[in-house]
């Protein structure tokens, strides 16, 4: 499943970069994110609650920063699972400065398996889109609040 989107944030690029790299901000912005603790290297252990159609569950996983090019690009690898299924995803977020604002675009590929794939698949695409929208609109709020 391919995911992509573009958002414009009313904040300079450096500020957005800072927010994106702050685990507390990520916990606040990610829908259903319960916990994000730093682990070895450039990785975090994450606990998330997600519902896709009839399937709801807690996912435990690992978020790894695969590549970091401050302040313009970050590539994340996510691997997680729970009773509702498994997710493996890789995504790149790119930040571009435009008239003092930041244009954020993301593109990613996610692979879902287990219950969530076989029962929730009709909703997966739209749920993923919704979660991404929620995340980035929360990030936009964070960005404008901190201006």
């Amino acid at each position: 499943m391919r995911l992509e989107g573009t958002y414009t944030l009313e904040a300079p690029r450096d500020r957005v970069w800072e927010l994106l790299n702050d685990p507390h901000v990520l916990v606040r912005c990610t829908p259903g994110m319960k916990q994000l603790e730093p682990a070895e290297g450039d990785t975090f252990k994450a606990t998330m609650e997600v519902g896709v159609g009839p399937v709801k569950g807690t996912f435990q996983g690992k978020v790894e920063v695969a590549e970091r090019k401050a302040p313009e690009q970050i590539t994340l690898r996510v691997q997680g699972g729970g009773s509702a299924g498994m997710v493996r995803a890789e995504g790149t977020i790119t930040l571009r400065e435009e008239d003092g604002r930041t244009v954020l675009s993301y593109v990613g590929e996610a692979q879902v398996s287990g219950l969530i794939a076989s029962v929730g698949q009709r909703m997966i695409g739209s749920v993923a889109k919704m979660l991404a929208d929620q995340f980035f609109s929360n990030l936009i709020k964070e960005a404008s609040a901190s201006r």
């Binding site: 009839p54 692979q111 879902v112 398996s113 219950l115 794939a117 076989s118 029962v119 698949q121 009709r122």
Partner: peptide, 14 residues
């Protein structure tokens, strides 16, 4: 099936 081998019609809803 999707390309990863997940059965997407995995319930009677699908």
């Amino acid at each position: 099936y999707d390309d990863f081998g997940q059965l997407l019609t995995g319930s009677m809803s699908d």
